[in-house]
Amino acid sequence: MKGELKPEARRADPEMRLSGAKPGELKPEARRADPEPQTLAATIEITTWVTKYVGGDGSGTRIFEEPFAPGETVRDVLRRYTRRIPDLDAALWSPDGTDLGAHIEVLVNDAVLGVAHDLDTELQGGERITLLGQFMGG
């Protein structure tokens, strides 16, 4: 079901609160576009060394839910999410914040960006966005 978290994600609920997520907070444009906006959500899966930025030990997986408004893109959701976590923000984006940096792979529904989605693809709700640390070494 769209937007539904897996059981393990539900267990991670305290972390979701720690992440500062504010369900229902919408961008002004979204408010203008839809006076009674439908709240959609994507799952953000943080894995490998990237978990260090969200209270993990650099391994395993942390799962969060990020609400968004209709019309928002992968970029919008990720920008808003990482802005609350400055170290992750610096690691994920290029210094000027306009593009992704080189060291974290972004997957949407298990496919790397560039295949079925890119940063400016509109989300439909229920997607799983994975941040996967680049692996270096043989």
Binding site: W49, A102, G133, M136, G137, G138
Partner: peptide, 14 residues
């Protein structure tokens, strides 16, 4: 961020 796992864990995260 990318090489620090190599520093700490070698190639195990692969």
């Amino acid at each position: 961020p990318s090489t620090s796992t190599l520093y700490n864990w070698g190639t195990l995260p692969g």
